[in-house]
Every structure is written in C-alpha cells, then in structure tokens.
C-alpha cells in the first residue's frame, strides 16, 4: 500500500507548491490594491499595506450606473459571441475534418491565409463602418472576430480524435452530416468545446479595442474600455494638477487603481471557471464505443 501512496503524496505536494507560486503574485496584487496611493509613492510596493484603504475601489464604482451598463454589455457579448463562434467555427471544422470532403485541402488553405495575413486596422475599420454599417452598434461587439482560424483548427484536431467507427455507424443508420455533428461530434468533444467557449468568454470579457475604435455611445462601452477610461481620467486629473503646479495630484489613485482594476476584472472569470471545469473530468470520452 505504501508504494502506491507515496507517489500520490509527492504529486499533491508538487501541485501545492506550484499553486503557491501561481497564487502569491495575485495575492500581492490584491494587497496592493488595498493600499493608499501616497504610501505607494513614499514606500514603494509592499506586500502588506501600511494603511488599508478602499480608495482605489471607490473610484471604480464612482459612477455605478455606467459601470453596471458596461458589465451588462460585456456579459452579453462575452456569452453570445462565443456561442455564435462555436456555430461558425464548429461547422467548418467538421467539414474539413471529414476525409470524404474533397475540397478540404483548399478550404483549409483558405482559412490558413486569413490567419497569417490581414488588411490591417484601417481597411477593416473603413469597411466595417462605412460599408457594413456596424459602427456604434451592439453588433460590432457580437460580430467581429467570430471566425478564428486557430479555433477551427483546434476543433478539427479534437474532432479527428473521435473514433471513426462511431461516425460510420451513424452514416449507415442514415444520419445526415448535420445530425452527426450535433448528436455525436459535439457531445464527444465537450472538453475542447467548453475550453473554446471559456477562451471566447475571456476574450470578450477583456476586449476593449472594439469599444475604443467603434463606439462613441456611452451605453455601449465594454467593461475593460470603461475601466481604461477610469484610469485615463485619473491620469488626466493628475496631469492637470501637475500643470497648475498644485500639490495633491500624486495622491489620486493611479498605481493602486491599476491593481484594483486587475483584481476586479479577473475575479469574475475565476469564479466562472469552476462551472466550466465540470466538463473537464476524466472518463467523458470513453463509453460510446462500448455500447
């Protein structure tokens, strides 16, 4: 018995050490976010705040109405967008994973080129605003970035790991491709599907570029852009103080604000992860074949 347990204990020990390494910097960041700006300036960053203060967080929630709207928009786009992209990416990935699809090589290259080359910001911006009319609407959050070559490829790899016999038996039963995709492939790819959904959610959560370039309506700002504005306002105020030669500008939270924002943005996602984690347990894939 001892022989089997020892490696297990080792494994857990190693993991616990790793977890400490992973968590400590975030812990430090949280501690710093609870400091006062003047302490940071005088004493530099330290692990335990000399004066516990919520001043950085107060600035974030100062305009709670706008903050809530930003949360709303972000949650909406961060959930709908990955879901849509699952549809767009999953379908084409399935097609190119099937050997019977004669054009799969060409389509793969078609996708590959979009991964490597692009027109750049300006042509996209001109097209999106002037031709497609997406500027300053909710659609710009939902539609941009929907199809991603790397996600397609991840799906494809995952799909090709599914035993071929399953698909063949469904074929023989007369199922069409869409049904195979929906009822066999996707359920059996739960880990990668949830991984891509999660990544998509994070991407939507952290995104600010679309707000920055396309949105001027305050009600459509994403969370990160809203927070970015909070910081640049703080910076603006500090500079104004400096310009007028007044003292006191330095004490307006700026460094601590950056930390507070980092903490505030990551916590919701970290809280969400355990729900995704459900799909990440052993023994999912096995089973269908035995039937």
């Amino acid at each position: 018995m001892k022989k089997i347990k020892f490696p297990r204990v080792m494994l857990h020990t190693v993991f616990i050490i790793l977890c400490v390494i992973f968590i400590i910097p975030m812990f430090i960041a949280v501690m710093i976010s609870f400091s006062t700006e003047s302490d940071i300036i005088t004493y530099g960053y330290s692990i335990i705040p000399r004066n516990f203060s919520l001043e950085a967080y107060k600035i974030i929630i100062q305009d709670s109405a706008s903050l809530l709207k930003a949360y709303g928009i972000t949650i909406l786009s961060a959930t709908v967008s990955p879901f849509l992209s699952l549809i767009f990416n999953g379908t084409i990935a399935y097609s190119i994973s099937r050997p019977e699809f004669k054009a799969r090589k060409i389509v793969t290259i078609y996708i590959l080129i979009t991964m490597l080359f692009g027109g750049g910001l300006i042509p996209s911006y001109i097209l999106n605003t002037q031709v497609y009319g997406l500027g300053n609407t909710i659609w710009v959050h939902l539609i941009l970035g929907l199809v991603s070559g790397s996600n397609i490829i991840l799906f494809r790899v995952s799909f090709s790991q599914i035993p071929k016999s399953l698909i063949e038996s469904a074929d023989i039963d007369g199922a069409n491709q869409a049904q195979i995709l929906l009822h066999i492939i996707i359920p059996m790819s739960k880990p990668i599907v949830s991984m891509i959904f999660f990544t998509g959610f994070i991407g939507g959560w952290n995104s600010y570029a679309t707000s920055m370039y396309y949105i001027s309506d305050k009600n459509l700002y994403q969370l990160q852009y809203y927070l970015k504005n909070v910081i640049s306002n703080s910076e603006f105020i500090r500079q104004s103080f400096a310009e007028f030669g007044l003292k006191g500008g330095e004490d307006i939270p700026f460094q601590t604000l950056k930390f507070a924002i980092c903490v505030a943005s990551s916590l919701p996602i970290l809280m969400m992860f355990p729900y995704i984690q459900k799909f990440f347990s052993k023994g999912i894939a096995a089973g269908s074949l035995k039937e």
Binding site: E55, K58, Q62, I237, L246, K247, G248, D251, I252, P253
Partner: peptide, 9 residues
C-alpha cells in the same frame, strides 16, 4: 467641496 487633495469621493 474644494479640497486640495480631492479623493474618489
């Protein structure tokens, strides 16, 4: 509410 050192509030 003029203060030399305005804070978040």
């Amino acid at each position: 509410g003029y203060v030399i050192q305005p804070d978040a509030s």
